[in-house]
């Protein structure tokens, strides 16, 4: 990353992605159904939802590729199509596989640089940035998916843009690559950029995203800071492991707690903290092996938020099997 100048930090703070009331229909499918959210600078915003929820369509609308039936998407206050040399404003990775296989990685960046009047030196900088120095002069057709992702990120960073939009950047990345992307996204946000990262797997965004926009059926289901979402989901749920689950549950219920036998040796309790449960059990003389306060994962939040969307259950299950 080039050193951010003071000048840039000023302009960066004005940048924002504003999506308001997007509607779009493809034949019988309502792909976008009132999609509205705002992405602010200085933090990583996750954009999640099952396949078909409208993530990619929304991103294409933001980039001026698709025209919505209703609503609008602005980047830094203007529609993308009105941007002059847009890659200097918005860097986007839409489809890492979108490469001419017989063109080298470096030449792919070269034509992009030419289209934005960027100096050739910038190409070597971004190649270095994404760690492709060894492969950049090879034909892109021989690149692994992970290398293509890196090349796509290099292309997105070519114009040193204040707004970065990455669609599914984790796909095909090896563990090392995933760690690299996470760190990279954090650094982009730390530099004050607007960072929007879409993914259909929540786990990838845990610990990376500050904010998540969860979408389903073409509209926003939740738009909140990750911490808030997780805290709300956790909501004082405790898991109790015991050899006598029925007795334990009965004892807890007698004390006015909501306890259910979840498995042969597990009881789930809500509405109480671990300390109180231990006290109740001790009083009743029910033996127990373990009492754990459950902290929900981002994935749990996501599953709950999207579970209502029965249409997507099957899709979701299939994705998780993958």
């Amino acid at each position: 990353m080039t050193q951010p100048t003071t000048e840039r930090t000023e302009t960066v703070t004005e940048q924002r992605i504003e999506v308001s009331g997007l509607r779009k229909r493809f034949g019988a499918t309502q792909a976008l159904d009132g999609m509205s959210f705002t992405v602010s600078p200085g933090r990583v915003t996750g954009f999640v939802g099952p396949n078909g929820a409208g993530k990619s369509t929304t991103i294409r609308v933001i980039l001026g590729l698709d025209t919505p039936d209703e609503g609008r998407a602005l980047v830094g206050g203007v529609p993308y199509r009105r941007l002059r040399r847009p890659l200097r404003h918005v860097g986007a990775l839409v489809d890492a596989a979108a490469l001419q296989p017989s063109r080298t990685g470096r030449n792919h960046l070269l034509w992009l640089a030419r289209s934005q009047r960027l100096p050739v030196r910038r190409i070597d900088e971004v190649i270095e940035l994404v760690g492709l120095a060894g492969a950049a002069r090879r034909k892109a057709g021989g690149f692994s998916l992970g290398m293509r992702q890196r090349l796509g990120i290099a292309a997105a960073m070519l114009g040193d843009p204040p707004v970065v939009i990455l669609d599914e950047p984790f796909n095909g990345m090896d563990p090392e690559g995933i760690i690299w992307i996470r760190r990279f996204l954090r650094s982009l946000a730390a530099e004050g950029r607007v960072v929007l990262v879409s993914s259909h797997l929540m786990g990838e965004l845990q610990g990376t995203a500050d904010q998540v926009v969860v979408v389903g059926r073409g509209r926003v289901v939740a738009d909140a800071p990750v911490d808030e979402l997780v805290a709300a989901e956790s909501g004082g749920r405790v898991r109790l492991r015991t050899a006598e689950p029925a007795e334990a549950a009965a004892a807890l219920r007698r004390d006015g707690l909501a306890a259910t036998v979840a498995a042969r040796d597990t009881v789930t309790v809500t509405g109480a903290d671990a300390q109180r449960i231990v006290a109740v059990l001790a009083r009743s003389g029910v033996p127990f092996a373990e009492v754990t306060s459950q902290r929900a994962s981002l994935e749990d939040v996501y599953l709950r938020l999207t579970s209502g969307e029965s249409e997507y259950r099957a899709v979701l299950d299939r994705e998780q099997d993958r």
Partner: peptide, 18 residues
């Protein structure tokens, strides 16, 4: 058509939206 086939046309149109 090579660009359409590979989706590269999207990259082209994001670089030059006109």
């Amino acid at each position: 058509t090579g660009e359409y086939r590979r989706g590269l046309i999207r990259t082209t149109l994001t670089a030059t939206p006109k």
